[in-house]
Write a protein that binds this DNA or RNA. Sequence first.
DNA 1: TATTTATATGAATATATTTTCATTTATTCA
DNA 2: TGAATAAATGAAAATATATTCATATAAATA
Lengths: 114, 114
Amino acid sequence: MIDELTLAKMADMLSIASDQTRLKILLCLLGEDYRLGGKHRCALEGEMPQISKSVSEIIAFVGASQSLVSHQLRILKDAKLISSKKEGRNVYYSLSDAHVIELVEVVLEHVLEE
Amino acid sequence: MIDELTLAKMADMLSIASDQTRLKILLCLLGEDYRLGGKHRCALEGEMPQISKSVSEIIAFVGASQSLVSHQLRILKDAKLISSKKEGRNVYYSLSDAHVIELVEVVLEHVLEE
DNA sequence: TATTTATATGAATATATTTTCATTTATTCA
DNA sequence: TGAATAAATGAAAATATATTCATATAAATA
């Protein structure tokens, strides 16, 4: 059976992805043209779309306050679901974990059916 | 792009699976002998293990109070992740959605790697 | 150097969720 | 019928989480 620590980590990942603001950030970094079952399925075979966006772009996409987005970005980063690189006065974020894509796909499939 | 309603539903599913007690219930219904990547991968192809357990068994497995387990079972049931059938004075629960299995697998893979 | 732009952060507030406790309903069995 | 077992429920208490607000830091530019 799965041990308590593993269980706790699983719950953590799910809870990090379960917030609407964070989920929207993840979708933003997945690319706006993201479509279910399409070319992105390839990501499952190790290839990951390397989209990276500045905080400003993410704020615009998500439509939440600067502060909220910044707080949530940190949570995602602490969980190692995204990573960042600084360039001048901008900070660019991108997905750092291919599992996130699978996670989004499974959940999306669940939601879309009927 | 994914619309707000779909997004909300996705967040819902994730948040339902993100609680440790509920996650443990799901794992319980997945079968105690559950192993990653093993025979259960078959579930992805439509075949779902039809394990069903009484509330008492679930309580024992999860190790939480009767009341808590009962509350969480209702949340899982409302979300249609599990279903129940009554037999005498027992109520048996089982997974009602194959996507849950995939969800658990993706998250487990994420957690297990390094 | 002073100003502007981009991002991060801490503390306070608002809100939601989990957990417990006491009680209730339903079923079986003596 | 009355006691015992299995499960569900409502309200209260405990806890966790999201969100805002005000402010800070860091880089670019005038």
